[in-house]
């Protein structure tokens, strides 16, 4: 495990798995889209708009999962000062911000026909919007310094502080009276969603997760090159 924490070895490994990850992302998204549009019935209450769920919910899961990964990498970075943890954290932020934006936009579009409004300052929506601002803050802060180590350190502190928002997003629908529906899938209970709707949701979630890994590997590769370029420049100076 620790063998691959070396950026060079990690890059060799990621070059080997990259085509497979892309292939898996493509296959799972294709199956997920087929099930979402051709094999899943409309909801008895929400009608055809329920199909937005197959992109909205996996994006929301990813927005939280990516932030958790960033938080873990930031803790590793601050304790062990590990370069790869900084690189992963920095590479995760734009991907997480994009999936959070997808969650907010698709949620807003879904809200119009079902709630009658594009936006409401409800606990779940507001905490998800705060997550987007934290992602943007992380991107800005990590690029705000000429010395990238300073940027990484400050961004890591912000990422760790921002971890407080994750349980708020997760349990906001239980803690407060909100327009947003509670979770249909829980870790311990049986899902309150029919299998015909659960399958496309799982396939889309897997497909988007593989897509996230693919983009992440690409961005990590770019970030490793960028750091090598910085080292070359320092040597020249």
């Amino acid at each position: 495990m620790f063998k691959f924490s070396n950026p060079k070895r990690f890059q060799e490994l990621s070059d080997n798995v990259y085509p497979w990850i892309n292939f898996l992302a493509f296959v799972f998204i294709l199956i997920g889209l087929y099930y979402s549009f051709f094999n899943s019935p409309p909801d008895y209450l929400q009608g055809e708009t329920v199909r937005i769920m197959y992109i909205h919910v996996p994006s929301a899961w990813l927005s939280l999962m990516i932030y958790s990964s960033m938080g873990i990498c930031s803790i590793i970075s601050l304790i062990w000062k590990h370069t790869l943890a900084d690189i992963i954290s920095r590479s995760c932020a734009p991907i997480g911000a994009s999936f959070t934006l997808v969650t907010l936009i698709t949620g807003s579009i879904w809200g119009k026909p079902t709630w009658g409004t594009w936006w409401v300052w409800d606990a779940r929506l507001t905490s998800e919007l705060i997550l987007l601002f934290i992602y943007l803050g992380h991107i800005i802060l990590s690029n705000a310094f000429d010395d990238f180590r300073k940027g990484d350190r400050n961004a890591s502190i912000l990422a760790i502080v921002g971890l407080i928002n994750l349980p708020i997003i997760k349990w906001s629908v239980d803690w407060w009276n909100t327009l947003h529906q509670p979770a249909s899938l829980t870790k311990f209970g049986a899902p309150s969603i029919d299998s015909v709707m659960l399958f496309p949701l799982i396939f889309m979630a897997l497909g988007l997760t593989f897509l996230f890994v693919s983009i992440l590997l690409d961005r990590i590769k770019g970030e490793i090159y960028l750091r090598k370029i910085e080292l070359f420049k320092q040597d020249v100076n």
């Binding site: 549009f37 409309p42 937005i52 992109i55 994006s59 579009i109 879904w110």
Partner: peptide
């Protein structure tokens, strides 16, 4: 189900908009 979605003109625009933007 897909034909049902295409026939529902009101909901179709919301579904298409969400998927296109994503």
């Amino acid at each position: 189900y897909f034909i049902g979605l295409l026939n529902n003109k009101v909901h179709l625009k919301y579904v298409c908009l969400a998927y296109f933007i994503s």
